[in-house]
């Protein structure tokens, strides 16, 4: 069934069941994302793709990668409120994500576009710069597409980490499917003929991570 919604003032037609993000892309509206991938189930943790939706006069912020389109929905993908969320999110995650004081790839693009001061919270940062934003693309791709579980999450809260499990990771060097998915380039950078050296579950258990 085709439904009609409004994205940034444009009338857009979409198949019911698709997400707002998919509908926006089909309509040529760009929404930035960090954890979304077209072959993976919506995960909704980077929150960068958030948009404002208005339904029956009620406005709320939702993440477009998980919110299903509805007839008559009014979507705003850029507003001062949305822009500020994206800016602060990048500022918050930057100290964890940076390598040698810099951001790379998509993160860098978003930081520039939204005027994020990537050093804003650096002096306050007491965590470990793990060059990982826990977007879970590697974890989910390995599980959902490759059909292995060589990488997974351990820990909780601020100690959450993505780690690889050595027992499962024998085929990793020939697979390398996750290398180019990583928005910070960590996996490719840290894999120098030794699979994911420095962020295995053993490193986590020994308190190195």
């Amino acid at each position: 069934m085709t439904i009609t919604l409004q994205i940034d003032g444009k009338e857009v037609k979409a198949e019911s069941g698709v997400t707002v993000l998919e509908a926006a892309r089909q309509a040529g509206v760009h929404i930035p994302t960090l954890c979304e991938h077209d072959r993976l189930m919506p995960y909704g943790v980077c929150r960068i793709c958030c948009v404002e939706v208005e339904k029956k006069g009620r406005k709320r912020i939702v993440v477009s990668c998980g919110y299903p389109v509805e007839n008559g929905l009014v979507v705003t993908t850029r507003s001062p409120r949305i822009d500020r969320i994206r800016k602060v999110l990048i500022e918050l995650v930057a100290p964890t994500a940076m390598a040698d004081g810099l951001l790379a790839g998509e993160m860098k693009k978003i930081a520039t576009e939204y005027g994020a001061d990537i050093h804003r919270f650096e002096s306050r940062f007491t965590g470990k710069p793990i060059r990982c934003i826990l977007c879970g693309k590697c974890v989910r791709y390995c599980d959902e597409v490759v059909g292995k579980q060589a990488i997974g999450f351990v820990g909780r809260g601020v100690d959450r980490r993505a780690v690889f499990f050595p027992e499962q990771a024998r085929a990793c060097l020939t697979c390398e499917a996750c290398f180019n998915l990583c928005p910070t380039g960590k996996i490719a950078a840290d894999t120098d003929f030794v699979v994911f050296d420095g962020f295995s579950v053993d490193d986590y258990s020994s308190g190195e991570l």
Binding site: R47, I48, L92, L134, G136, R156, G157, V158, D159, R160
Partner: peptide, 15 residues
Amino acid sequence: DESCGQCIPCREGLR
């Protein structure tokens, strides 16, 4: 400590 740590605003915001 008790957040799941999945999403950036909660995890990095709290930290």
